[in-house]
Design a protein around this nucleic acid. Structure first.
Length: 641
RNA sequence: GCCGCGGUAGCUCAGGGGUAGAGCACCCCCUUGGUAAGGGGGAGGUCGGUGGUUCAAUUCCACUCCGCGGCACCA
C-alpha cells in the first residue's frame, strides 16, 4: 500500500508536507525542539485533539501550548484528573463523578461516606505532586459502551456508569488512562502528568448536589486552582487576598456602617454613617427619577393575606414570605414586593389615557424569607429596600418607556463608574401566573422593546418573574465581578388580576400595561457592591464623613472649630478632631476608616487662615485659604446629576 | 434548606476537664507632638444558648441558634 502524502497547514500559513501520517508530537518536533517540549495538544481543523493523535490527512493544525487559553484549560482539566487519581490512591473506596474546569481552576466531585475536610487537602496535594513527578503517560482509549458501563460498575463507580448510560447513543466512549488510574473523559488531555507542573493549589471543600439537583444526594467537592507557573499562581492568590480586603462585611464593621445580629438574621442594623450613605443614594435616585418624570408614593409594609392571594404571591412566592397575624385574628403578610400595594394606589380614582404613562416610584422595604444558607452580608438579606417603580402605560407607549428605563439605568450606573453592563432577557418560568397567550404577548412586546434599544443581550430561558418576562442589567465591578442589579419587567397579569383600567379616548375601559423596574435593585446590596467596588474609598459625595479637621496642638483648637463651622455651614459632613493625640495618630486613624479629606491645622494655618489638605491615600499636602478650600469641596461634593 | 467548618473581651485571635489570656480599641494620668500607631496605668468575659456525662464543663456529648465556604435558591 503506497503511503499517502499529508499536507499540514500551520497557523502562519506555511505548509509542511509529510510522506506519511504523523502524530502531532512529530509535527511539533519537526518545527522545533522547544515547541515539541511545550506541546500539550493541538487543534486539527479547529478541533482540539490529543497531541499524540495521528494526522492522516491534509489539515490545518495549530500546536497548543500552555501559552494558549486552551492550553491553560487543559492544565486545569488535567489537574482535576490528577487530583482524582490522588484521591483514589489515598482512599480507594471513594467514587469519582465529574471534574470540570471552571474560572481560575477546577473542581472534582467525589462520593464517599465521610466527606473530606480541609485537613485532607495537604495530603491530597502532596500525592498530586508525586503523581506529577512520576510523569505518567496519559493515553486515550475508546471503549465499547456496555463494556465501559460494566467496567465502572465492577469498580464500584456507580456514578461513572450512570454518566455513560446517559451519553447519547452513537457518542464515542473515551477513557483516559494515566498510571493505574482510568477515567471517563471526552478529552483531550496532556500527553503526561509531568506536563502539569506544580503551579496548583487545592482551595476548599464543599458539598454539592449530584447533577446540581437539590433532590439528589450530596457529594463532596474539592476546588483547586491551577496556573501555568508559580508566578501566575502567586498573582492569583494575591488577588484573592486583595478581594478579601474589600469584603463589605469587614469594611462595614471597620468603617462603622452597619451590623447584623442573631435577633434578626439577614436584616441590617444601619449605623449613622451607613445610613448617611444609604440616604445619599436615595437622594440621588430621587433626583434622577424626578428629572425622568416619576412621582413617588409609599404603601404599607403589612397587608391582608387575601391581597397576596389575589396577586398570586401566596401561591407562587409563598414560601419566601413572612406572615403575621393580629390579636383580632386577622391574617397579614409582610410585603415581599411593592407591586400589589402600588396597584392599589393606581386603582384609586379613575385614570384617563391622558394620565398615561404614569411612572410611580416607591422606596419600599420588602421582606423575603430567604433560605438560611443564602444569606450573605448586605448582598443577600431578608429585608431590603428597593428603588422600585411601576410604570402604567398603553401597549403602544410601552416600547418607548422601556427604552427610557434602559437609558436611565445605564446613565445612572456611569455615575458610579460602572461602564460595563450586560443585558439579559428572561422569559416565562415554570412557576407562573397567567395564560400562555398573555405570556406570548408580553414576551414579544418586551423583546421588541429590548431590540429597539439597539443593545446586545443574552437570552436566559425560563428565568422571568412569575408575572412576566424581564430584562436584567448586570454590572461589572472594579475587580471584575458581575452583579445583577437593575431589572425591567413586563406585566400583563397583575393589571388583570387587580382589574385596573384607564378610560381611553373612546370612552371605554382599557387595561394598562404595567412595567416593574428597579435600578439599584436592592439599596442594601447596592451599598455592599459600592463598598467593594470602591474598596471602602467612597467618592466624596457619598462618604458619610467627608472631612475631618485635625489639630496638631491645642493651640489650633479655636481655629479648627471655626473651620468646622464653616464646612458644616456649607453643607459638608465634617468632624472635628481636637483630641490630645499626635497628628500621625489622627491621620492614621481617619485614614483607616477611609475619610476622604483631612484638614490639618496648626499654629501656622491658624495664623494665616489656611488649611493643609490631605487626601486619603496621598502624601501630598495642599495649602489653601479656608474659604477657597470650602468652596472647592462644596463643588466636588455635589451629588452628580 | 443541604454538606463541611466555626462561635472565647468592642475587634483580631491564643488556650483548653479544676470557673480564662494577648494585641488593638476603651477609661485615667503624663506627653503640645506638623501628616499612617508617644509613654504609663486601669477597667472589661456567666467562653452563642439549652440539656447531658462528670466530684468538677468554657473544654467532652446531644440538640439548637447564629456565622463562614460552597451547593441549591436568588435582588
Amino acid at each position: 500500500m503506497a503511503s499517502q502524502k499529508v499536507k499540514i497547514t500551520l497557523p502562519d500559513g506555511s505548509v509542511k508536507v509529510f510522506d506519511a501520517a504523523i502524530t502531532g508530537e512529530q509535527l511539533a518536533a519537526s518545527i522545533g525542539p522547544g515547541l515539541a517540549k511545550a506541546a500539550l495538544a493541538m487543534t486539527v481543523d479547529g478541533e482540539l485533539k490529543d497531541i499524540y493523535s495521528p494526522l492522516e490527512k491534509d489539515a490545518a493544525v495549530s500546536i497548543i501550548t500552555a501559552k494558549d487559553e486552551q492550553g491553560l484549560e487543559l492544565l486545569r482539566h488535567d489537574c482535576a484528573h490528577v487530583m482524582a487519581e490522588a484521591v483514589k490512591e489515598l482512599w480507594p473506596k471513594t467514587q469519582i463523578t465529574i471534574g470540570p474546569v471552571i474560572e481560575n481552576g477546577f473542581y472534582y466531585d467525589f462520593a464517599r461516606a465521610e466527606p473530606f475536610t480541609k485537613d485532607d487537602l495537604p495530603k491530597i496535594e502532596e500525592r498530586m505532586r508525586e503523581i506529577v513527578k512520576r510523569d505518567e503517560t496519559i493515553r486515550r482509549e475508546v471503549w465499547d459502551r456496555d463494556k465501559a458501563i460494566k467496567f465502572f460498575k465492577d469498580q464500584g463507580e456507580a456514578y461513572k456508569a450512570e454518566i455513560i448510560s446517559d451519553l447519547p447513543e452513537g457518542e464515542e466512549v473515551s477513557l483516559y488512562r494515566q498510571g493505574d488510574f482510568i477515567d471517563l473523559c471526552r478529552g483531550p488531555h496532556l500527553p503526561s502528568t509531568g506536563k502539569l507542573g506544580t503551579a496548583f493549589k487545592l482551595m476548599k471543600v464543599a458539598g454539592a448536589y449530584w447533577r446540581g439537583d437539590s433532590g439528589n444526594e450530596m457529594l463532596t467537592r474539592i476546588y483547586g486552582t491551577c496556573w501555568r507557573d508559580k508566578k501566575e499562581l502567586g498573582a492569583y492568590l494575591h488577588m484573592l487576598e486583595e478581594a478579601e480586603k474589600r469584603d463589605h462585611r469587614k469594611l462595614g464593621r471597620e468603617m462603622d456602617l452597619f451590623h447584623f445580629q442573631e435577633e434578626s438574621p439577614g436584616a441590617v442594623f444601619w449605623h449613622p454613617k451607613g445610613w448617611t450613605l444609604f440616604l445619599k443614594l436615595i437622594e440621588y435616585m430621587r433626583k434622577r427619577q424626578d428629572d425622568a418624570g416619576y412621582v413617588e408614593i409609599s404603601t404599607p409594609d403589612i397587608l391582608d393575606r387575601e391581597l397576596w392571594v389575589t396577586s398570586g404571591h401566596v401561591e407562587k412566592f409563598g414560601e419566601n414570605m413572612f406572615y403575621t397575624s393580629t390579636p383580632d385574628g386577622r391574617e397579614y403578610a409582610l410585603k415581599p414586593m411593592n407591586c400589589p400595594g402600588g396597584v392599589l394606589v393606581y386603582a384609586q380614582g379613575l385614570k384617563s389615557y391622558r394620565d398615561l404613562p404614569m411612572r410611580v416610584a416607591e422606596f419600599g422595604k420588602v421582606h423575603r424569607f430567604e433560605p438560611s444558607g443564602a444569606l450573605h452580608g448586605l448582598m443577600r438579606v431578608r429585608a431590603f429596600t428597593q428603588d422600585d417603580a411601576h410604570i402604567y402605560c398603553t401597549l403602544e407607549q410601552m416600547k418607548d418607556e422601556c427604552i427610557k428605563v434602559t437609558e436611565l439605568i445605564l446613565d445612572i450606573y456611569k455615575d458610579f463608574g460602572f461602564a460595563d453592563v450586560a443585558l439579559k432577557f428572561s422569559d416565562r418560568p415554570e412557576r407562573r401566573i397567567g395564560s400562555d397567550e398573555v405570556w406570548d404577548k408580553s414576551e414579544k412586546a418586551l423583546k421588541e422593546a429590548l431590540e429597539a434599544t439597539g443593545r446586545d443581550y443574552v437570552y436566559n430561558p425560563g428565568e422571568g418573574a412569575f408575572y412576566g418576562p424581564k430584562i436584567d442589567f448586570v454590572l461589572r465591578d472594579a475587580i471584575g465581578r458581575d452583579w445583577q442589579c437593575g431589572t425591567l419587567q413586563m406585566d400583563l397579569n397583575l393589571p388583570e388580576r387587580f382589574d385596573i383600567y384607564y378610560i381611553g379616548e373612546d370612552g371605554n375601559k382599557h387595561r394598562p400595561v404595567m412595567l416593574h423596574r428597579a435600578l439599584f435593585g436592592s439599596l442594601e446590596r447596592f451599598v455592599g457592591i459600592l463598598i467593594e467596588h470602591y474598596a471602602g474609598r467612597l467618592p466624596l459625595w457619598l462618604a458619610p464623613i467627608q472631612v475631618v479637621i485635625a489639630t496638631i496642638t491645642s493651640d489650633g483648637d479655636d481655629y479648627a472649630k471655626e473651620a468646622h463651622a464653616a464646612l458644616r455651614e456649607a453643607g459638608i459632613r465634617a468632624e472635628l478632631d481636637i483630641r490630645n493625640e499626635k497628628i500621625n495618630y489622627k491621620v492614621r486613624e481617619h485614614s483607616l476608616v477611609k475619610v476622604p479629606v483631612m484638614f490639618v491645622v496648626g499654629k501656622r494655618e491658624a495664623k494665616e487662615g489656611t488649611v493643609s489638605i490631605r487626601r486619603l491615600g496621598s502624601q501630598n499636602q495642599e495649602i489653601l485659604p479656608l474659604k477657597e478650600a470650602v468652596g472647592a469641596l462644596v463643588k466636588e461634593a455635589r451629588i452628580p446629576s
